[in-house]
Design a protein around this nucleic acid. Sequence first.
DNA 1: CGTTGACTTGAGTCTATTCAAATCCTGTGG
DNA 2: CCACAGGATTTGAATAGACTCAAGTCAACG
Lengths: 247, 247
Amino acid sequence: MIMSNKAASSRTSVHIAHQLKKLSLFSELSDSTISHFAEKASLYQRDKGTLLFLQEEEIQWFYVIIGGWVKIFRENSDSSEAVLDIVSHGFVLGVDSIADYDFYTYSAELIDETHYIKLPASLLKYYLEKDHLMARNLLAYLSQQNRRKNREIEHLNLQNASQRIGCFLLRHCSSSNKDTITTLRLPYDKSSIAARLGMQPETFSRAFARLKQQVDINMNGSIASIPDKAALENYVCASCSSGLNRQ
Amino acid sequence: MIMSNKAASSRTSVHIAHQLKKLSLFSELSDSTISHFAEKASLYQRDKGTLLFLQEEEIQWFYVIIGGWVKIFRENSDSSEAVLDIVSHGFVLGVDSIADYDFYTYSAELIDETHYIKLPASLLKYYLEKDHLMARNLLAYLSQQNRRKNREIEHLNLQNASQRIGCFLLRHCSSSNKDTITTLRLPYDKSSIAARLGMQPETFSRAFARLKQQVDINMNGSIASIPDKAALENYVCASCSSGLNRQ
DNA sequence: CGTTGACTTGAGTCTATTCAAATCCTGTGG
DNA sequence: CCACAGGATTTGAATAGACTCAAGTCAACG
């Protein structure tokens, strides 16, 4: 990232600080702490295919996703990979093992043009020791991740392919007004959603077709619009232990 | 828990302190902190079927499992339940949401006669604020749980029924000497293992039979013995991204 | 206008599920 | 100590869902 001059750099830093403040990981931190992070951070926009980091690499940076889509995955000895998650704006990547392990335990790759902030892990570690609030925020973040994964395990066990697709859609709808039509930009590459949901691309295609038959969903390129979100929730959560808004 | 006199209570407390010290959650904490926990804790031994807590209840206690087996699960609107995990000695239950949510996000039930310590959540919360080490230990614990669940999701996606059973066995073998025969007491009720692994009891039975054909495993009541652990690892981890001893 | 890559559709196969029946265990009462 | 009831586990047969491989469609792009 090349800055033309100090002023530009400062403008970027203010912009980054603004983005960081939105995150629960940085909530209630002092302005000086946040600007400290913002000063050491850089803003990126990169294309599909860019690797953020690989499993087993030493943790040097962590990432905040502003927009776009990132695939979190693990590769194994034979060629296949397991997609653990596909995440978008507001997600923080690479902090899961920062407290006790020092190495990334998964790989992360952009599957769309993505806008993100890159921050030094050492700074987070520093504040983790120094600032009790930082530790508490990370605790809350990890707790939330745990619950997210519990839900994931439950769904893999109990939901069928169509329901899992519907659930994925719902999770990525910004919780907008119930009465308006919800629209949502999906990752360009649908086969990675399939992998994320633990199914083959063909199964995804067929199951999505079935889902569209059951509840009203319109696809327009990679834009999905859902006229009746409640109907989708109803279809999806027939076998969920937690309603959509529960933890 | 009725104590006959102060001396007995004190002996119990020393015993509990000894157990707590083994856990990473309490590692490096001062002796006085640990005895503070131990004083407020009680030791229990209860039968199969005992409920430790239910999802949505307010978190009042957390639990350390000394021996036996506990089922962690979530129930949903229709009758079915999702078993998130089945855990035994050394596991800490009920702290996942202590930092940010105040309610249990899963239920826990003994599926065997089980030996455990019950501790007040408020004390953990108190030290979480006061003692930086406690926060760091819980961070490490949650990080580890996250990795455990990532592995779980990967396995649900990539492994077949037999491999998942083998993996469950391996995970619960104490990492003893490679050359000796490994033995392992399984929960009395096999159908909860089946549920834990996301399959029906019938599938469990058939898949286990297949596993026993492939690698040498002897069952004797609920005691499994594995003469050649390496062979089992080899069978199971053909499609794992992480070797057994990785994080 | 043809090529390329992504997605869909089709047909056959495989794995796990379901329902039903048989068998094995275990704890209990005689 | 043994027989027995009841539950858990196993086995069998039919079915359903997802997978694989192959072929077809579609749209974007040069």
